[in-house]
Amino acid sequence: MENQTLVKEICPTTTQEWIKEGAVLVDVREKEEVAQLAYDVPNLLHIPLSEFEERFNEIPKDKKVVMACKSGGRSLRAAGFLVNHGYENVVNMQYGIIRWVQKGFSTKGDTASVLGNDGGCCSSSSCC
């Protein structure tokens, strides 16, 4: 992912382990993207980036939190936003649901919707 030091980043495999240990996965993709394909994990919170500034306090501060999106760009910014707002247990999942699907991890919906083009986040309506 991009070189930055503010937010720690983990891969989808490590994310699986964190979730088994009780971490919360926060999906920041927009509603229409989630309607096509969703992460299938317990402890899942969906807060679209377009609503994030108003709703970020729904995220618990006392648990490990993994931010995720389509390819890791938007979730990284959301994670940085949380760190700047006092969250200490936040990490970003690199490569997003694209790599998650490639790894064969559990989802609900049409995987072709993300594997078709690797346009990254820019192709979504919320503009990267």
Partner: peptide, 28 residues
Amino acid sequence: EDIEEMMKYNVLTTPVLVIDEQIKIKGR
């Protein structure tokens, strides 16, 4: 375009227009 620089502005949706260090327009 540097992600760490952007994070200083607490940027979520982009693009963002900043004039004299004041965010004027974001997400469109």
